[in-house]
Design a protein around this nucleic acid. Sequence first.
DNA 1: GCCAACGTTGGC
DNA 2: GCCAACGTTGGC
Length: 152
Amino acid sequence: MNYWLMKSEPDDVSIDDLAARPDQTVGWYGVRNYQARNFMRDEMQLGDQVFFYHSSCKEPGIAGLATVCRMAYPDPTQFDPKSKYFDAKSTPDKPRWLQVDVRFVQKTRLLSLNQLRSFPELCEMVLLQKGSRLSITPVSDADAAFILGKLC
DNA sequence: GCCAACGTTGGC
DNA sequence: GCCAACGTTGGC
């Protein structure tokens, strides 16, 4: 079982939106970075735990927990010409972009980016590395345990 | 395969 | 809205 941190813009899908969805699940559409895609394709397993992170917003940080409930499959938005995620070079035969589904687990207090940075224990987190902007990053068992301790 | 130019991310 | 840091594209 792996831990991941997944960024979502709350204006798009927030932790509250996830909780309010049918089945409390959402397809993680819109990933257009190969490294992030490869994490989903090659490493994500059913039951993996997800730290749900709000990005590009007033208070960026971890806002809740989720779990991977469907393994990687083609992201439908890549085939939709009306979508901003449309990719003309991708075909249903050879889809370029994938998504997983995640299911709501719980909302937590907001553990802000600033707070995360304040813990020396977390200084190796991929999220916190200089210049890091991957929307999906692995979280080590030790870091995950530490964060869970701060959240709950 | 190099690398300049351009595009994107995301915190501030 | 700025801009640092990265990623991608495409000519050569």
